[in-house]
Design a protein around this nucleic acid. Structure first.
Length: 423
DNA sequence: TCTGGGGTCCTAGGACCC
DNA sequence: TCTGGGGTCCTAGGACCC
């Protein structure tokens, strides 16, 4: 067993905290951030959590509370959150050469080479520095495995007496600590697994750590087995410093209103497709497989239909028109009239790095002909002048399918016209 | 629940081959 | 047809994550 040391740095209520950074007057106001389409609550400040509102609640259900509790709602603003995330990660990277950016608001730091430090002090320094440089409050959890670091961060966040930092390494009461963690809060144990485990009386992390391996493997596959070993202090979930190439890229949106006409769906699909291929290019990837899917609203009591269709490109590409051509045909194959559609999506897979794409004698390679130059220019313009400055006619101009974002905050950090003004 | 979007991994089972 | 064994590859579905 290796004696690893991991820290998990987790931003507190990340989206809500981002909004607050730019509106300091909301320091004590309950803040909620909504999902796309302003559909439901995806993030809350602690003041709002205290009101007993739960994540995932449909937004309209709390409209009557807004005035009473002076709640401030925001439509999600991923341009802002992405930019703030980059600032946090850049700050964190100063504390170790070995960092894994795990999600938009979390990073693992490998601190195995820092055994000699007072880890609690180091954690506090990390926390204070991130707050000073970005305005985002974070929790720091330290443990021998990633799973234990996760649990530590949860404790750091939950109990204010720890000042946002908790270290489980060599903790004398480790068993007691694990007993306080409900099994469904363990990283890797979701709703279904928790249900199964509870049936057998395995209610908390300590119990889970004591379960025989063959039983776990049979019930929860090798994934569950890894989790159990991690709880025992045996690090077996890989630490991924390198950015691993995506295996698939998805772009999809629910519609603001039900959509029936093929022409509207074609616009939406073209728009999603354009975004998906953009994401490919951001990482210098090419791909050769694209899937279009559509679905009606399964929560409505009306005729239901869902289907998908895929196409293979002759040559792996990141040239948007190559994909637009395919998704148009694919959508036509699966479209049926007279349904109220809720959502369409485009998924791109069979992805590889552009330098690894096979060369074909009869077909031009994406890198070789003018297509890459064209795409680079389009991307540069859209980056400088704003998303969709240049876009494809196929995406349409009516865009009646566009989502609703009633409570959108300004793009403080990514749009020159919306910079905060100091008077 | 009247519900967001974007990902990953694992397994079972079918297709196909010898 | 009262039907062998074994391997690989692919896909759908189910679980998980943020």
């Amino acid at each position: 067993m290796r004696n690893e040391i991991f820290a998990l740095v987790d931003c507190n209520n990340f989206y809500a905290s981002c909004e607050r950074v730019f509106q300091p007057s909301l320091r004590t106001t309950p803040i909620g951030v909504l999902s796309n389409n302003d559909g439901c609550i995806v993030a809350m400040s602690k003041e709002m959590k205290k009101l007993g509102i739960s994540r995932g609640k449909p937004a309209f259900k709390i409209f009557h509370l807004l005035q009473k509790y002076n709640i401030k709602l925001f439509s999600s603003n991923y341009a802002l959150y992405g930019d703030m995330s980059a600032r946090v990660m850049k700050t964190l990277s100063q504390f170790t050469p070995e960092m894994e950016v795990y999600s938009i608001d979390e990073a693992f730091l490998r601190l195995t080479e820092f055994q000699h430090l007072d880890l609690n002090e180091y954690g506090k320094e990390i926390r204070d520095t991130v707050f000073k440089w970005t305005g985002i409050p974070v929790s720091v959890g330290i443990g021998r495995t990633k799973t234990l670091a996760k649990i530590a961060a949860r404790i750091a966040k939950k109990y204010s007496k720890f000042n946002g930092v908790f270290n489980t390494i060599d903790h004398p009461k480790m068993d007691k600590i694990l007993e306080t963690i409900p099994v469904e809060k363990v990283w890797g144990i979701g709703r279904q697994y928790a249900k199964k485990l509870k049936k057998y009386g395995i209610l908390n992390a300590y119990k889970l750590s004591q379960v025989p391996e063959y039983w776990v493997k049979r019930q929860l596959t090798v994934v569950g087995l890894r989790t159990v070993r991690e709880l025992q202090g045996d690090s077996c979930i890989d630490f991924e410093m390198d950015i691993i190439p995506r295996k698939e890229v998805v772009a999809s949106r629910s519609f603001g209103i039900p959509i029936t006409e093929l022409s509207d769906l074609q616009e939406a699909v073209a728009s999603h497709c354009t975004r998906a291929v953009e994401k490919l290019r951001e990482q210098n990837l090419v791909a050769s497989y694209v899937t279009v899917y559509l679905t009606t609203n399964r929560f409505k009591n009306e005729p239901q239909y869902a289907n998908y269709s895929s196409s293979t490109l002759i040559v792996p590409s990141a040239y948007t028109p190559d994909f637009l051509k395919e998704v148009k045909i694919a959508l036509k194959r699966i479209y049926r009239p007279n349904y109220n559609y809720k959502k369409v999506g485009v998924m791109i897979s069979k992805i590889m790095h552009q330098n690894n794409a096979p060369l074909y004698f009869f077909y031009p390679n994406y890198l070789d002909d003018k297509r890459k130059d064209i795409m680079d220019n389009v991307d540069a313009i859209n980056k400088n002048w704003g998303t969709n400055t240049i876009r494809y006619a196929a995406s349409g101009t009516k865009q009646k399918w566009q989502m609703q974002r009633e409570f959108l905050s300004p793009s403080y950090t990514t749009n020159w016209d919306e910079l905060p003004v100091v008077r």
